[in-house]
Computed example of a mutant assay.
Amino acid sequence: MSEKPVLKLPKTLSEKILVALSILFLLGIYGIIIVNWSEIPDRVPTHFNFAGEPDSWGGKWSVLILPIIATFLFKTLFIIGMFPHIHNYPVEVTQENAEGLYRISRKMLITMNFFLTFFLAIGAWEMLTVAQGNEGLGMWYMIGMLVSIFGTMGYYMYKMFKLRKK
């Protein structure tokens, strides 16, 4: 088995923008929780069924679950994205295709990170909204999240397969 080349590739402008937006989503949801803390009821929804209806409830501190998960996932994917030479690829990595594969893999992780922080921030906001007696987002939230995550993976995997050695 050959060693994958280690390349230092600067982030593109679009990657920097997606990372910045992800951080803004994280900071925003923590900010919303802090600002509204006194108005959050003692009982908040902690889980929604596929139709978007709450089917499990928890205490006030439960509103921090999704932001904490989002923060953990953001940090993990951000760090993993810094080392594309250790990623698993669906095609063989060669000197010729390494730069392209690494860029695609990093962009996939950054894009998935963006969608995860976006949808987890929306989920936390929905918890607050429903806890205060308002209507939730329904099934479109879950559909949007699943299509975004799996669509991103499929799109970037397709791009990787196009780079395979002919």
Rank of each mutant, 00 (worst) to 15 (best):
S2E: 12
S2L: 08
L7E: 12
K11C: 03
T12W: 07
S14K: 12
L18R: 03
L27H: 10
I29M: 12
I33W: 02
S38N: 08
P41V: 06
T46H: 06
H47I: 08
A51G: 09
P54F: 10
P54G: 14
S56Q: 15
G58H: 02
G58P: 03
V63W: 05
L64G: 00
I65P: 00
L66W: 03
I68N: 07
I69D: 00
I69W: 04
K75T: 14
L77V: 06
I80D: 07
I80W: 07
N88H: 12
V91R: 01
V91A: 07
V93C: 05
Q95S: 14
E96D: 14
N97L: 11
A98K: 06
E99V: 06
L101R: 02
I104A: 00
R106W: 04
L109F: 14
T111V: 06
M112Q: 04
L116Q: 04
T117I: 06
T117F: 05
F118R: 05
F118T: 10
F119Y: 15
I122V: 13
L128V: 08
E135G: 11
G138P: 07
G138D: 08
G138H: 10
M139R: 06
W140C: 03
I143G: 01
G144A: 01
L146R: 05
G151S: 12
G151M: 08
M157G: 05
K162D: 12
L163R: 12
K166A: 10
